[in-house]
Design a protein around this nucleic acid. Structure first.
Lengths: 324, 324
DNA sequence: CTGAAAGCGCTTACAG
DNA sequence: CTGAAAGCGCTTACAG
């Protein structure tokens, strides 16, 4: 910077002003500085800048899943990609923070609280998320309803309940009479709300026999369907709370000799890449993940700018394919 | 830090020494400092530290794919996860950098050259990668052979050619006589080397009729198989250079009324999650992605420590499932 | 083993 | 519009 100042014939203070918005810099000085920067190949030292501004221009993307399962979830990719791009548009960088184990949480907590980042995007499905309590004073936006923290935390979520209603209604409209469901884990917002949406539509027909609890994995979906086949063998439709589980369901139905959709209609949730990779392709509920990403970033920036935490719930969309 | 010094009754210099390895700090001082830190809740300011050490303790994970296709590739997840964890083990953080467009490359180049990171992990399949030239003087380790930069760059790769040989040999040993292949793009190491491995085994039988060029996408695999069906309708086996393409191949074969593996055996490459999600499950070549991740991090740390660039090639493994 | 001091490279009131 | 100066919070020879 000293060199640039010398070449441009101005003081370092003026260089700094030119670099930061150009307020109070004469056109002449501006031009000289520009030329001097090009000539010297100068780049600002981010640490020196951060030291005084107290801003790092980076955001933590915290993955707080005990099993680190999110890494197998195709939704995660879209979210990560979306957030990275949305942040980049504002010249913010994303740093990955995996907080699976207690030790990880500790490390991530120290990192985040240590002033490395200006805020955090929190991605986790389970409630009672222990990392939240370790993050003190830093702006946070959660992805999905943060069960148990709805009040304090900003978050962006898809309309899980509404989406579940859409799908269940669709299955009934197609003439299905016994619509079972495979849920997500009961300690996840999707697990709770997608089940609630199903109940909304079935009303008095929502018997417990028709409910199997899944775990958002393919194998879990497979196993859950087998349980349903035992408790409600007459079922002719299943609303499965995630596409990945629905893929397992499809396999289980095949083994059981039930055709999809002829014998059993299967409706998924997510519209993740697996939806089109399985056979038959899944009729499902699309979560607007890209939109969720950009909204998360918007909310986080607002938070950093001192605005109060906000919540955004985004509508879902029914995608018709072959499984129902 | 001033506060801690006051509470512990020592100078800031001593605190700093205690924080950085504890060299030349008496046990008494050490204990007092520890207590003072706990009492005050002190955390070091990373920017101040980086300003003097010239180290940021963070590494860029650069995704340099024109189409940003890597985000749809399940291999990518494993790699990202593996790298994040391997870095975490050394208290290094990973920052995502997407360099798809020219504008992105510019941004990432400025970021990386600006001293934000201590090194970079470069993930990209295509050669002639323009970002490489923008990264000056910073330690880099590439994932996969960086075509055109093999000499200067450190990299970690799976043994593509050897793996292709394994698979082709396997198909022949199973009694298949006309083994076609669907390749990756010719400007990617996998595209080149997996084809070479196939040629190694087929020798004089490696007719161009049996080769279709793919693009590592599902649809590309589908289309490529259709071309093979036209140029070599008698084929009874296909070695497909990626599992994702193999998934497309399976779909195309189904439409063509050819049974897998009875009529046509299909061998994939990667052992990515799709391999087990398709029907029939893919016989494939496993790339040791986790191992690749840890090796990349090891090499990068060595590089940062001033050692010369090294190359590591890791063996692959044949995974037998149902498609061949 | 310890403290005083210089210095890392910026930004930002402040006075002009 | 501009420059001189203070200060951001650390680390690291240096002298003791």
């Amino acid at each position: 910077m000293e060199d640039v100042a010398a070449v441009a014939g101005v003081s370092r203070g003026t260089i700094s002003r030119a670099l930061n918005g150009g307020r109070n810099v004469s056109p002449t000085a501006m031009a000289a500085i520009r030329k001097a920067i090009a000539q010297t190949g100068y780049v600002v030292n981010p640490h020196a800048r951060s030291l005084v501004t107290q801003r790092s221009q980076t955001i933590a993307f915290i993955l707080s899943e005990p099993q680190e399962r999110l890494f197998e979830d195709p939704n995660f990719n879209i979210l990560l990609h979306g957030c990275t791009q949305a942040l980049a548009a504002h010249d913010l960088m994303l740093v990955m923070a995996i907080a699976g184990s207690a030790a990880d949480r500790d490390r991530v907590g120290r990192y985040v609280n240590g002033g490395h980042v200006d805020g955090a995007l929190l991605v986790s499905t389970h409630s009672g998320n222990p990392i939240i309590d370790e993050l003190r004073g830093i702006p946070i936006v959660a992805c999905g309803t943060p069960l148990g923290h709805e009040r304090e935390l900003a978050y962006v979520a898809a309309d899980d309940r509404g989406g579940a209603r859409q799908m269940t209604r669709y299955l009934r409209e197609r003439g299905r009479t016994v619509v079972a469901t495979i849920t997500g884990p009961p300690d996840t917002p999707g697990g709770v709300q997608r089940l609630a949406g199903w109940r909304d539509v079935l009303g008095a027909d929502a018997s417990d026999r028709l409910v199997a609890i899944g775990d958002y994995t393919r194998d879990g979906g497979d196993a859950a369907l087998n349980r349903l086949l035992a408790s409600a063998p007459e079922l002719d439709a299943v609303f499965v709370a995630s596409d990945l589980m629905a893929a397992g369901t499809l396999a289980a139905l095949r083994r059981a000799g039930r055709r999809v959709p002829e014998d059993v209609a299967v409706g998924g949730f997510d519209d993740s890449p697996v939806a089109t990779s399985v056979q038959p392709a899944l009729t499902t509920i699309r979560q607007p993940l890209l939109r969720i990403s950009t909204e998360m970033v918007r909310l986080l920036r607002d938070l950093i700018d001192g605005q109060p935490p906000a919540r955004v719930v985004l509508p879902t969309e029914l995608i018709r394919r072959d499984s129902a």
